[in-house]
């Protein structure tokens, strides 16, 4: 079996322990992410997704249980997390709200500068990261982050994470609030990072259609526990189950379920419009 890049075992997280506001946000979560794998993370608001994401690069420390990143265990307190953070890059929700420098080049270079790299190395990393997100340094480097469109700003924030050259990206609602074009560009970029760079992805999303495009496997959290850990194709077709967990089944899954109810089953259960069209050609004898 391949070694895991990310291995989480019986993780418990309690916020504000010992106070009247004590809350168990994670209650025994276990999961693994292999190198190059893309995992979707879904669940209702308050199910613990963002808490779990923050454990993946040591922003939060386990109350109980363990989190290992490339074999390194994140201690409950203290310790040097430099290598953990270099391995796992975390992109928060609405990350463009954290852009702050005068130019894109300075903003993306912030992390590498803090690593103590030489100006030449910082420059290389900034150029590489901006190139990857489609904002080449020659055209965009000297622009203000605030002069970009919403989708561009989101990608600029991602460049800041990529400049740290992580092997795994954890993204919290990466397409929320983007227009359809901006969202599609971001999803394409993530697919490319995985295919061309072998990067692992952990993607938190409410949008099951985004997950269908991006990931192979999906974990659903419910009240701080793993309610399901299954291939995305199986999970997205359990429409009633998704509904019970406040998740919205994709339109194609609902349609597939409706057709199956009347005796017309599509094989394999389609995740994309092309797959659905293909699966229907036979039964409808279309050319």
């Amino acid at each position: 079996m391949k070694t895991s890049l990310l291995e989480i075992c019986d993780l418990v997280h309690v916020y504000m322990p010992g106070t009247p506001f004590e809350r168990r946000a994670l209650d025994g979560v276990s999961l693994r992410v292999a190198p190059g794998e893309a995992l979707g993370l879904a669940g209702a608001s308050g199910s613990g997704k963002s808490t779990l994401a923050q454990h993946m690069n040591g922003l939060l420390r386990p109350t109980q249980g363990s989190v290992r990143v490339d074999g390194m265990e994140i201690p409950q307190r203290g310790g040097n997390l430099g290598r953990v953070r270099a391995t796992v890059g975390l992109l928060f929700q609405f990350p463009e709200q954290q852009l702050f420098e005068e130019t894109l080049e300075l903003d993306v270079g912030f992390g590498p500068r803090n690593l103590g790299l030489s100006p030449v190395e910082v420059g290389e990393r900034v150029a590489e990261a901006l190139e990857l997100v489609g904002l080449p340094v020659c055209r965009f480097g000297s622009r203000s982050p605030f002069a970009l469109s919403g989708g561009e700003r989101r990608r600029a924030a991602l460049a800041g994470v990529l400049a740290m050259r992580p092997r795994c990206l954890v993204l919290d609602e990466p397409t929320a609030g983007l227009d359809p074009r901006g969202a599609a560009a971001l999803l394409d970029l993530l697919t490319r990072l995985r295919e061309e760079r072998g990067m692992s992805l952990v993607v938190i999303s409410h949008r099951m259609e985004d997950l269908a495009r991006l990931v192979d496997r999906m974990v659903v959290l419910s009240q701080g526990r793993v309610a399901a850990d299954a291939p995305v194709r199986d999970l997205l077709h359990r429409t009633d189950w998704l509904d019970r967990h406040s998740l919205e089944a994709p339109a194609l899954s609902r349609l597939t379920a409706r057709l199956a109810q009347e005796g017309l089953s599509l094989e394999p259960a389609p995740l994309t419009v092309s797959e659905a069209e293909e699966a229907l050609r036979g039964p409808l004898s279309l050319g």
Binding site: P250, A251, L252, L255, E277, L284, L286
Partner: peptide, 29 residues
């Protein structure tokens, strides 16, 4: 640059492939 709900895109492709669909189809049902 608008996103087309996937069931409508499917409807459009099936129509192009020769399926007879009523005009003004909007809902999944």
């Amino acid at each position: 640059g608008l996103d087309i709900p996937s069931h409508l895109e499917l409807a459009w492709r099936l129509r192009a492939a020769g399926l007879d669909l009523p005009d003004g189809l909007v809902g999944e049902e």
